[in-house]
Design a protein around this nucleic acid. Sequence first.
DNA 1: CCCGTTCATCAAAATTCGTGATGGGGTTTC
DNA 2: GAAACCCCATCACGAATTTTGATGAACGGG
Lengths: 295, 295
Amino acid sequence: MTAPLDLDQLQSFCAIADCGSFTEAARRVNKTQSAVSMQIKRLEERLGHPLLTRDGRTVALTEHGEALYSRARRMLRINFEIMDHFSDGDLKGSIRFGVPDDYAVRLLPVILSSFQRTHPKIVVDVRCQPSEELLEGMKKGKYDLIVFTQGTNHEYGELFRTERMFWVASHGGQALSTEPLPLAGGLHCCWKDNAVEALNRIGRDYRIAYTSSNAMAIASAVLTDLAVGFLPESALQPGMRVIAEDRDLPRLRDAEIAIMRASHAYGGIYDALASHIVASMGNLDGRDALPMAAE
Amino acid sequence: MTAPLDLDQLQSFCAIADCGSFTEAARRVNKTQSAVSMQIKRLEERLGHPLLTRDGRTVALTEHGEALYSRARRMLRINFEIMDHFSDGDLKGSIRFGVPDDYAVRLLPVILSSFQRTHPKIVVDVRCQPSEELLEGMKKGKYDLIVFTQGTNHEYGELFRTERMFWVASHGGQALSTEPLPLAGGLHCCWKDNAVEALNRIGRDYRIAYTSSNAMAIASAVLTDLAVGFLPESALQPGMRVIAEDRDLPRLRDAEIAIMRASHAYGGIYDALASHIVASMGNLDGRDALPMAAE
DNA sequence: CCCGTTCATCAAAATTCGTGATGGGGTTTC
DNA sequence: GAAACCCCATCACGAATTTTGATGAACGGG
């Protein structure tokens, strides 16, 4: 029987795909750059096809690389699930954890309560801020581990979830038909760029009508018909009206949710929390992916 | 970052779970018994819990072992998918492949045609027989690789698919209300045991009305209202009426479809075919499994 | 045009892993 | 009930694999 693939190699491969760099990926998986380089070399030899194009400064996936990537992700996701299940309940320590407040409201209670149940001795110190500020805080060493929305800022972490973005308005409100379109969004919110870019693409006029770093405040701006908002699926709230795509608003890009860790935040309690987050809210396991042959 | 699990260990673990023996599993994964034993030891140390109970002659999964098993299977299934995708189209040779004829009708054309497309130089010599005879043929060296229904015979292979079994009758036929119940089944068909056992359990009287080693013949016996049949999901045909569970027939055990290989049939072209089969008709990837926390 | 960064490569070192032999414990057989 | 048997765990050793740190070539920004 031909031996199965090496998950360690696949992890390195995915890390490279995520951050577009061997060197950076090596940091993430706690190896030297040359180790990662050789792992990929062996992986490519094993599969008989190049997986990454090294083109000067940029590293990109080949077609085969793409096909492998989604499968490798699924495997790693399951690996996280297992790690989460078996991770030691005796671990203790504290983690400074940052998360954007829009997710905090909806997802955190569920995730953290089950985490607290399995890891009663780990203190999770949660702080809620917009993604941009979380990244800044991370640079200043204020966090051990953050969840953030990546993409428009040019920071990339361990991608583990994507979410559809929706335009939302209040039921029966006027905002949607107002010209220029009044928008409500976070001050430094990276989604704003997504929305503004999308509007520019179709040449629709708009103005920023309301700005706040507090997600609840944005939500109420929308609900009171002050403005039109743009939210990820899991931040939608009852009372909001999702605007169908055929209206004249452009489709928004999906939001990419990733984890970033401080350089010391690997192993032990940090892995426990990261695995738990990925296992319980990751959606990149490709369960709805097509069979390989169909691609 | 804590290193991911070793798929090689998981493969050995699954092999043990499948056949209930370290020694036999070792044969399957082409290792010595001691190698497998140590792999499991390392795996258990890694996860911090015993996964298998060694109790005299029998090896069984612990609760943690069960939880791991389904995840490991999913990972291995994905591994097969990848192997299938990347497997070398230049492989050549011929494979004597056996499969029960009921599956042959429905599933083989799809699977073999896509296999032929990706591996034009491999000749697959297909023979259709009931599972029992395939196993006999395998012992006599007549096959390189077979797909069979395991369970009632005490042979176990690499389990890769389970199927719901159904009682079927013809539309508007009388057979179902005849006493004793007339049955149609394969001569040495292992499903017969399943059905007979199920009927005995509820004390329902029956007689074997029709027997043939040809699945088409059985199907026509059912369709012409000669008898009631019992078929796996994928062998159901238009014109058959599936008998709902609330009628007075007992629920049948699921059929377990497995692969068995001759001892020489590992690596190269054999892996290519086995991977392809598992990747394209395996259903044990646990996509409908509950999240681990819920178990 | 130089400097900094990135990735590939190499040989040596370290680690990991499998092997074959051995032993204990349980089961079957006579 | 003893002997033969089968199964799994363990051990020391040797083999294979992997990582490392150093080095070189290619590229791009300032």
